[in-house]
Amino acid sequence: MPAAAARVVLVTGVSRFLGARVANTLQADPGIERVIGVDTVPPSMSLGRTEFVRVDIRTPGIAKVISSAEVDTVVHLNLVSSPSVPRAKVKEFNVIGTMQLLAACQRSPDMRKLVVRSSAAVYGSSPMDPAVFTERDEPVEAPTSGYAKDAVEVEGYVRGLCRRRSDLTVSVLRFANFLGPGVDSPLTRYLTMPVVPTVLGFDPRLQFVHEDDGVEVLRRMTVEDHPGWFNVAGDGVLLLSQALRRAGRPYLPVPAPSLSAIGDMGRRFAGLSGFSPELLRWLTYGRVIDTGALIDELAWRPKYESAAAFADFVSARELGRGGPLHLFDRLSGLIGRG
């Protein structure tokens, strides 16, 4: 049964960066009649023909929006990882918000498709991990806290909805860490610290997905039918040390306990974000996901490799070269002359 193309699309979390970009991309598609964006705060950038509805997805108000507008496609991007919001509130948003939204989706007779932004953080990070996670792999140590645990719970509720409404096309996307000129996340704040502390004795393997690629994947999942769970990341892998060297960031390896102490101090005195336990584990053990399933399904490959996404972030923030490399070039220049 080929589902008709998305007609009325609802995008959650539209006031934040990713939501706004996805809404802007979808409204450019002439096949889509209406794009409705919802969030708790008004959008900071112009949304064009996207209709903004200020509604809290944690309340039943969301069900009214879905039924009255006859929404057939929901793109759920409202997964908050922001460290500036208190943890209890974030959990409320992520988990309770998703429950309300999915309840509304289950009720609506017009619903045909659900696209959910999840995170590769659901795999956790541990020294016992397989080198590369595929969608079939279970986490070795399931995340026990924070954003990663929220993502696990969100996926659990989505699975429940799949069971109860088997007629829906459901795509769940496990994104690697977003990077790009417009991204502001715990990771970007970490990378732009004046001296970046790293975990002594560990050099994690990291992957990134460029914001443009992330938006493109979400667009394709919305306008085409690709049911299933998919990992999304740029090709290739960067080591943390390698990434910091490429960015010309000075870094200082410190023992893991002092790293979390630095994070705490930063949060308390300097208004920084601190390091959440899942970020710390990721910075210690890293994580690599396999994107073969996505590439096969879409017959498309992310335009930016992990390294290119990182480079784009670096050049947009004008981190660029300098620091150690500059010093080295001057020194070796001196030797050359001597």
């Binding site: 080198a131 393997r205 892998v237 080591l239 910091l244 060297r245 690599v288 080295f328 070796s332």
Partner: peptide, 21 residues
């Protein structure tokens, strides 16, 4: 040797998905 050091400091090398350098 200097060229090698420079590549290392600049991070201009490749690792595979297992971290092999």
């Amino acid at each position: 040797g200097l060229a090698f050091l420079r590549r290392r400091i600049a991070g201009e090398y490749e690792v595979d998905e297992f971290g092999f350098d």
